[in-house]
Design a protein around this nucleic acid. Sequence first.
DNA 1: ACCTGAACACCGTTCAAGT
DNA 2: ACCTGAACACCGTTCAAGT
Lengths: 225, 225
Amino acid sequence: MVRNRSKGRPTKPLVNRDKIAQAALTIVGEEGYEKLTMSRIARRLGVGTSALYNHVSGKDDLLALVEDAVMEQVECGPLNAVLAGAPERTPHGALIEWAMSYRDVCARHAPLVQFIATTPISGAPRTVEMYELVARVLEHAGVARENIVPRIVALESFIYGSAYDVHAPTDIFEVLPGSQESAPTLMAAQAAFLPAEDAGEPDTNPYADEPFRVGLAALLADLAG
Amino acid sequence: MVRNRSKGRPTKPLVNRDKIAQAALTIVGEEGYEKLTMSRIARRLGVGTSALYNHVSGKDDLLALVEDAVMEQVECGPLNAVLAGAPERTPHGALIEWAMSYRDVCARHAPLVQFIATTPISGAPRTVEMYELVARVLEHAGVARENIVPRIVALESFIYGSAYDVHAPTDIFEVLPGSQESAPTLMAAQAAFLPAEDAGEPDTNPYADEPFRVGLAALLADLAG
DNA sequence: ACCTGAACACCGTTCAAGT
DNA sequence: ACCTGAACACCGTTCAAGT
C-alpha cells in the first residue's frame, strides 16, 4: 500500500459508488467472482481497503451495486417493441427473447444468482424497471392481474436455475462405471438424448439449452403466440 | 485446542468421512451454513482442523458429502408407489409430491443449491438413485426416451430457483416509496395478487408457493393427470 | 496411516488518527 | 467528510514432526 499522498481527507473524493461498481465489474469480467474482494477493488482504485467503507456499508451493499450494473446487460428491447405496438412481434416471442437474454446474463454471473433471487428489488432500480416491462407485456398478453406476479416469479425461478446449467460440466449426468447398472433408465434416456443433440453446434451445452427451451415453452404455453 | 492425547497416529482412527458428514449436517442444522467451516467440524469431532484433510480433499469434497446426506431427506415414496403399480397414484401426482419435497429440502439448504446444480452427480450416489426413479416415472407416464433428460433438467432447474424464493423476504417486490410511480403495472399486479393470498395460512410465503404450483403444473401439463 | 501444532496467505470489518 | 494504516477475528490449506 505505497501511496505518495498525504494522509488526511483529500480535497476531492477519490472514490464513489459508481467507481466501486465499475471496478467490481471489471474484476468480475477479468478474474471472476472468486477474486471479487474488497481489497482487490480498493487496489484497483488506488486506495486502502477501509476507504471503501465510506461509500458502501459492506459486501452485501457492494453486491447490490453489481447486481444493478449487471441488469443493464439484459436485452429488454423486444419487450419494449411489443409495448410500442410493433406488429411483427408477439408477447410470446418477446418474453422468450427476454428470458434467454436474462438467463445468459445470469449464467455469466452465476455466483450472484442467489443474491439476486433473495434480495428485495427495492435496492436495485434497474431490476424494478425490467419487471415493470415484463408485467406490462404479460398484461398485454391477456394474463389476469392477480396472475402476473406469480407468473413472473415462476419465470425468473426457472431462469435462475437454468443459468446454473450453462456452466455445469458436460459430464453432469455421467454415472460412475461401477454403478451404471443401478441407473439403467437414466443411462438409456441420456443415450437417447445426446446423439441427436451433438449433431448441432458443439459450442452450446445441450444439457442447458434444450431443457431451457422446452421449459420456457411450457411456462408460456397459454399465451397467444 | 487442549487435548490430553498423545501426539502421533492414534491406534484407531478418530475420524472418517461418515463422522465428518454427520458433524457437518449438525452444524448446518443448528447454526446454519455460514458456520459450516473446517475448524468447526474439527472442533465438534475433537480433532485439529488439519486432521480432516486425511479424509477429505478439501471443502468441495466436504460439500459433496453433505449433498449426498441431504438428498436422503427428499421424499421419493410417491415415485416408488407409482412404479409399484399403486392404483390410486398417478405419475403426475407423484412427480408433484416429489418436486415439492425436493424444493423444500433445497430451501433448507439454499447455500448448497449452486453446488448441487453444477457438480456431476457421479460423486453423489443418492442423487443418481433419485434421478433414476424420476426417469422411470417419466417413462411410465409416456414421455419419449429422448425427452426424459431435458424434462428432468427443466424440472430441477425450476425447483432450484423456486427454493430460493422460499427464503426471500416478503417485501421482495416492495418498491421504494419514491419510485412507485415508475412501476405502476407491477404495483397494481402485486396489489391484485396479495389480498387474495394472505387470507390463507400466514406461515407460507405467497411469493414462493403459488408461483411454484403454477410453474410445476405448466411443466407437467402434458402428462396424464 | 493418521494425528498435532505451527505457519501461510488470505478474507471482511473496525477504528483511532490525520486533514 | 473522507482517507490511512494498524489491528481483529476469522477463513481454507499445507507441512514437518510425531507415533
